[in-house]
Structure formats: C-alpha cells, structure tokens
Design a protein around this nucleic acid. Structure first.
Lengths: 350, 350
DNA sequence: CTGAAAGCGCTTACAG
DNA sequence: CTGAAAGCGCTTACAG
C-alpha cells in the first residue's frame, strides 16, 4: 500500500488539507462530522505523517526533560546516561526536538522535589528520570499523570506507577550474574559476604533486588556450599566500614568473597587493601573511576556494568517514538549486563 | 554563525540557485570563474546542505553494498552484524539510502570472488565487508580503490589496504580478556591449552592475534604458572578433534583450562562432555546458538562477544557520514568486548 | 552556460 | 467552521 498523504486524505474527504491538518493535530474548530470522517480515512489507510516534511516546515519545538543525580566525584556513574541522552538529542535535533537536563543532589529529597517542580513549570512533552528516591518519585509520577506527560524510567523503576517505559537492567538479573562470577572463582566451601551500602535502603529498590538475585542463584544451582552472610552499612565513611567489617570478619574467618550490591565497591576495596585482605574475591557494580582504579590493581575482580549510555540514549528514543511517531513501545526494556574485568575495561565504554 | 543556504550563496555570488546547485554537485556546465566564486563562498561560510530538505525532494537513491559470509548452521554468528546493517539502513532510509546485502559461502574463495564481481557490477557508493579471506580481499580492495569506492571493514581488517574505516574488536585485546578470565579461575599450577580451529590459518588473522594477546597476558602479569600449550586443528570433524585432543591430553595430564581462539567452542565442549572432562575450564568466542547450549550446561564457562550488531550498525553509519555528510571519521573504531556467562547470556543481545 | 519555476509533504497565518 | 496560498531548503526538468 502506497503511503497516503494529507492531500490524499483531503481529497477523499472532500475537504482541504488545512482542515485535515486541523483534525490530525486536534487544533479544533472542525465540525464533528468532518472530523470523524477524516479520522476514519486516516485510520483505514494507516496514515503516517512524513516527518521529513514536517521537520522542514514546522517551527514548533518539542522539549523533553531529564532528571538525574548531579554527576559528582562520588557519582560519576551518572555521566554516561547523560551522554546517551545528549547524543540521542543531537540525532533528533533535525526533527526539532530538544532535551533539557535537570540535576539533583544524589539522595537529597528536598533538592529532588525542587527540580521536579522546575520540570512541571517547563511543561515538557516527556520526561526521563530515575526513581531512585521512591517516595518523592511516585509523587512526581502522579503529577505527571495528571498533566498527561509521559515519563520513561532509567536505572530503576516504580512498578505501581503509570510509566510509559523503563530502560535499564534488571536488578535481580544483575545479582545472578554476579553470583555466577563469584561461584566460578570461590572455593566450594568458602563463605560469601553480601554488603548493602546505602544511606536509605528502602529507597533503593535495586540494591535489594540484586541481593535477592544473588541469593536465588545459590538456591537454584551454585556449586558453592558456604554461608551467605548479608549485612547493611548505612553510612559509608571509612571508619564505619572499618568497624563493621572488622567485626564481621572477626566472627567469620572463612569469608572468601564479597559482593557489593551497588557502586561503592572501591570503599570496600580500600578496606581490604589496608587490612591485607586483597585475596578475597570482590565483585560489585559500575565502572566508575574509583572502582576502575582498584580493578586495575586487582583488588576488585569484576565490575558489572549496566550500559548507562544505552539507558539514556534509548529512553530519549522511546519518548520520541511515542510522542512524535505514535509508535507502540516495549514497556520494559531490560538491557543486558556487562561483565568487566581488568582487561576488558580498557575498551569499555558502556 | 547562522546556517547558510543555497539561496544565500546564490545571492552573494549574483547567480541563481540552479547554478549554485550545479557547482555543488559537480554537474558541470558552469563557467570556471562562476564555479570558483561559488565554491569559495560555500567554503568560507562552511555551507552544509540541509539533508532534510534534500531528502524531501531528491529522487536520487544512494546504494551501499555489504558482503558477509552466509549465515549458516555453522556460522549463525554472521546473523547479528546483518541485523545491525539492516537497522542502520532502516534509519537512513529517510535519506534515500539503501543497502544491498551480498553473501558468500564461508571460506569459499571462489564464491567470495564471484560476489565481489557482482558488487563491482552494482557500482555502489560504499561497501561494508569482512576481509576474512585476506588474499582475495586485498584484490577486492584494489579494485575498489581504482573506482574510488570507499570501504569499511568489520570483524577484522587488512592494514596495508586503503580502507576508510574499521569497526570491530581488537583480536589481541580479546585474547587478553580471555586470559584474565582463565587466570581468575584456573589453579596457579594448572596448564593451559590454546586451540586454533580453522581451515586455513594464514587467512584468519584474528585467531592469531587472539593467541598472541592471550599469551602476552601471562608474560606481563598472570598469576598462573602452568604451561601454555598451543595447538592447531585444521579440520573440525569430531573424529579429528577426538584424535588430536586424546593425544594432547594423554601427554599432558595437568591441563586445567582450554582457550579456543574462535567460535567453534561447542565442538570442544562436545568432546569434553563425552570424555567426562567437563571440569576443565573452557573459554571461547561468540554467543552462537551451539555455544550457548554448552554455556548453559556449564561446560563452557565464558564466551566472549564482539558486539556483532554494533559492528554492522556502525559500519553503515560511517559510510553514511562519509559519503553523505562529508564528516571526518575515526579510522579504527575498536569496540569493547563482552564477557558472557551462564547468567548474563539470558539478556545478551550483542 | 544560466535562470525561472514547479514540486517534495507538511504547517502556518489569513481571509472569509 | 473552512479553504487558498505561501513557505521550509533543496532538486529537477525546461527554456533560453
């Protein structure tokens, strides 16, 4: 079936192209009857606007917003999705699409709320963000829902919200991949320590899911028979880590591997080095600068990456496809997970 | 600086847009003087054609060619780059770009030559191919050079040729990544066997590079102190593998890990299983169907992937950027390598 | 050798 | 509520 144009619809409906355009864009001022007729013809013929022509002529600029933690010394991790977002935006610029980036201080609820207000003020056609602060995020979702603004999650998601799509890894899956790695290297009778390092554990769903995935692996199939000890360290100051780990490792002399559910692996690596425990296998998430340092030294054995670049890139693409193209989308797009070792890091670029 | 249009150039040069278009497209029939003036103005103002407008109006269709081994039962590996090529082509279709895919029977020189002739016949604006047959490929390169047709390599490259760009992994790097993996799992005193499985070893550069990379790792830094034994098996029939491995393993009782430099890992996995040697660590390349089967069974411990999809995708993009956009390109784009284990394979999609 | 004009498919005022 | 016309930046015959 040849592509149908606005002109063709106009002819079939016995009206002018201006009228067709008005109904297609809901610009009102069209008789109900004419409107239905046009909509019907468009539907039957599967009308798809020619974006090239639209881009050439339209002055309208569509804006999306992104909201991510500020990439800081502690969280450079957030740089990569930003690059993905920007590159997707650059590609879509020809279609008059723009992305405005907002940032909030990681784990700072007040700042997060402030930024969400700024976004609502902007009234974008779509939003990309990471609901790492679940309570505040779900309130934000409600407001977006009210205004009919679609939103795409990256990094983690809020299942009970009305999100358009999610692009990111599956925490459970990431935990299992890590478990498989640990299981390959650890002696069968060695014990394994799981550490959750986060300010506010309830708010960081994905760390929990990773723990679950990790444990589930050993319930299903792991060959390791040792204990699986799970601890939480709410603050990550060196002294607190020192104190907590000293006590755990004293009680448990047989720990041969440590799995960190988040990206602050380097803090544990530091501890292991200063306590001459570098022979313990150490696996965690995200090739951020500090982690790479210890990976290169051999203290960290594997890092698990989550295609942060792709997350940002694809999230913007999804918004584009939904808003401009009216395409159907895969709601949950689970990206594969990367296993990174001392050698593969050299060319890693997420 | 605001974007300059053909119309602006025409005004500045005191001619019509038709004339400007003629010189910009080398359609001749323009006085030398006028031509130079226009070229000068275009250059000074850094004229960039508006591709959107061009696409809307132009009837010209630009065609690229790809040449890859036919994806067969043995080599499904070649499916993924093809998907990448097709998806890049789909995205660029709006700019009237088309890619025609040619296939040759893997390792069949005659068929390869036949296909290259068909491509020259088509006279495309660019070619994407993999020079796995080095002799025939370099002859093809020469012919392309003569005709001024740019070509992009994927998977491996011919350094002495005049290629536009290369997109793929670095064999040496892949070998090192594998070595790091083996080194993590193998006992310090275990011996390691390296197997090259290929019809014609001279023609498959990358297998050699991987061996070199693998060995270099242990020269630099590996903790493993065992022997590194390298063998070649020119034919991969089960009986030949059986015979060869029986003899090697009989002579060497201490082999704890095997590294396969190519993608026929599954053939070795079969051997290990039927000889009850599954406890030997097995690492090789490419998540093709047969390999995945043994990865899931646990006979293969790790597979190394090479982003085949990205290779195809990016190769087409490069051609597009060079031919249509006149952009400068990174000549050698080394893609990162993927480490795949039993768990990560579940979401792997290259 | 060169220019004027039509057209790609859509959007945008403007007039009625 | 609706239509006719101009315009986005480029390409393509066609006329001279």
């Amino acid at each position: 079936m040849a592509k149908i144009r606005i002109k063709d619809i106009a002819e079939q409906a016995g009206v002018s192209v201006g009228t067709v355009d008005r109904v297609l864009h809901n610009r009102g001022e069209v008789a109900e009857e004419t409107k239905n007729k046009i909509l019907e013809i468009a539907k039957v013929n599967n009308y798809q606007p020619n974006l090239i022509a639209r881009a050439l002529t339209s002055k309208k600029r569509c804006v999306f917003a992104s909201l991510l933690p500020t990439p800081t010394e502690e969280d450079i991790f957030w740089k990569r999705p930003l690059v993905g977002i920007s590159e997707a935006a650059a590609e879509l610029e020809q279609f008059h699409l723009k992305v405005e980036n907002f940032f909030f201080e990681h784990y700072n609820e007040q700042d997060f709320i402030k930024q969400t207000e700024a976004i609502l003020e902007l009234n974008p056609s779509g939003v990309v963000f990471s609901p790492i602060l679940s309570k505040e995020s779900s309130e934000f979702c409600q407001k977006l829902d009210q205004r009919g603004i679609p939103y795409v999650f990256i990094e983690s998601k809020l299942d009970k919200s009305n999100y358009l799509a999610y692009v990111g890894s599956d925490g459970f899956h990431g935990g299992r991949v890590a478990a498989n790695l640990v299981d390959f290297g650890v002696p069968e009778n060695g014990d394994i320590l799981i550490i959750n390092l986060a300010k506010n554990l309830e708010n960081v769903l994905h760390l929990n899911q990773r723990t679950q995935g990790f444990l589930s692996y050993f319930m299903d199939k792991g060959k390791n028979q040792g204990l699986k000890i799970s601890i939480e360290i709410p603050k990550s100051d060196p002294e607190i880590i020192q104190e907590k780990l000293d006590s755990v490792l004293k009680k448990n002399k047989n720990i041969k591997a440590i799995f960190i559910t988040g990206s602050k692996v380097y803090k544990i690596a530091k501890y292991l080095i200063s306590n001459e425990l570098s022979n313990i296998i150490l696996v965690g998430f995200d090739p951020i600068e500090q982690n790479i340092k210890y990976l290169n030294q051999g203290t960290i054995n594997f890092l698990i990456g989550q295609h942060p670049y792709q997350q940002g890139f694809k999230a913007v693409r999804k918004l584009f496809e939904y808003v401009l193209l009216n395409n159907e989308l895969t709601k949950d797009e689970f990206l594969p997970v990367d296993i990174i070792n001392q050698e593969s890091i050299k060319l890693y670029e997420a």
